[in-house]
Design a protein around this nucleic acid. Structure first.
Lengths: 246, 246
DNA sequence: CGAGGGTTTGAAGTGCATCAAATAGTGTGG
DNA sequence: CCACACTATTTGATGCACTTCAAACCCTCG
């Protein structure tokens, strides 16, 4: 498979580009370039001029903001196939957060102008973008709610549920997507709290924890425990914690 | 002024409709109707079919979600001139939250189909909508950050700053827009916590509190205290806590 | 084997919630 | 204009959740 073909494959993973013309996808593939980044490498910082938007090709990206104090708020952690930085189109051309590689990884960088043109010239693309924004908004809404209403063990349970196949009946085996310290920050808690909260979740729901692998006889207990403090009805993985990549 | 003229005036307050054609505004005015609601009256609940979007004509609307437990998370509290419910266009046609009047108030209800058509048929409107969504997203992003990084007194200080004219030098007088209990829920804390946190803020920054009126010699102390735990640079009222109505 | 990061555990402290009760404020009818 | 009813706000006491700091443990990888 040629490099361009690879790029096209990656682009098609992104929700926003599902219905795009081959022509536009081709243009992005032609102008986009693959970047490698090592663990801890900062891709850009908040307020940088947003010349590119990115798609994760492999590995994980941490999006975050920092205060004067040096405290850090993790905005999101994105897996393969996810786009980021594209919202700068509507934010006076600056990135609204910083981005850092959490391990050795690859990214696709595509010039922002290309997307901007397409949105301005192709009404369908504008609608698709609206749809993507709405999706993101829903995600953020739920995030605020979870941080407000769920305690630490419940947030972990909720994350596990969104990691699992919710339509599956019976025994379930889940593997945490990245290390526990990172996951703790993603869920807005300290690593120590995560550790203790996971132990509590185990005690409350009977899940079996073995390193990064978690098993249970069924999702029921977890649903009962975590979903009580959430406004969404259970089968809720219209917004998975982490998109599966086929 | 005729009723229709009044409606037009209200519609033009909303950011999204600033650049709209008179024709479209006229259509909305013709099909929209003014609704009165009393304190505590529920306008719609989460998952209701979204037939209308609304604009606040007078008074305040509380948007919130509720869990199975009965706990409530306040999404936002909107003043005159603000629109809500319009995002259901992209959320499978259901409202993503419940809405309640916080006092006797008036609303304008406009059929959703009208907005949908305009967005689908008028590329300019789609772009305007994108811009509005991005604005909202930014607002939510900041909200998550504040809840994560700021403590209760800092959140209050930050709210006050966004209520004030940040370009103004010297003494400042601020009036809280609604009652303290509601404000507490807006900031994600209990009324008791709000009371104590405001006292602490007073002690730390030297502001003078008298009922719902707050005065200070300058914003400096407040900025120093609250903005330390925020990633945005100080003059930050691109996203006011509460839009001023001229 | 040893270094280093990830993870867990312990002890102590902070912040916010909760429950209970006092106080201030507001609007009402007399 | 006053007393009452009712709500908003404050204050006190206590408990729980999460953080912080410190240290131990564990696992992996050179």
């Amino acid at each position: 498979m040629s490099s361009t073909d690879q790029i096209i494959t990656v682009l098609k993973l992104e929700y926003l580009f599902k219905g795009c013309s081959d022509d536009f996808i081709g243009q992005m593939a032609a102008q986009g370039r693959i970047i490698s980044a090592n663990k801890g490498q900062v891709l850009f910082v908040s307020h940088d001029e947003a010349a590119y938007f990115y798609i994760v090709v492999s590995g994980w990206v941490k999006l975050f903001r920092e205060t004067l104090d040096g405290a850090q708020a993790v905005v999101d952690i994105l897996p393969t196939g996810h786009m980021f930085g594209e919202t700068s189109l509507f934010e006076n051309g600056e990135y609204p957060f910083s981005a850092e590689a959490t391990e050795s990884m690859k990214l696709l960088a595509v010039p922002m102008g290309l997307l901007q043109q397409e949105i301005e010239n192709n009404p369908k693309m504008a609608l698709a973008m609206l749809s993507a924004m709405a999706r993101y908004r829903k995600h953020q809404d739920r995030e605020i709610e979870h941080r407000t209403l769920q305690n630490a063990p419940q947030r972990i349970g909720c994350f596990l549920l969104r990691l699992a196949d919710q339509s599956h009946e019976g025994a379930v085996k889940i593997h945490l997507p990245y290390d526990k310290t990172l996951l703790a920050s993603r869920l807005g808690m300290q690593p120590e709290t995560f550790s203790r909260a996971l132990a509590k979740l185990k005690e409350k729901t009977g899940i079996k924890v073995n390193g990064a692998t978690i098993e249970m006889d069924s999702l029921d207990q977890l649903v009962k425990y975590s979903c009580a403090a959430c406004s969404s009805e259970f089968p809720c993985n219209d917004l998975p914690a982490c998109r599966k990549v086929e």
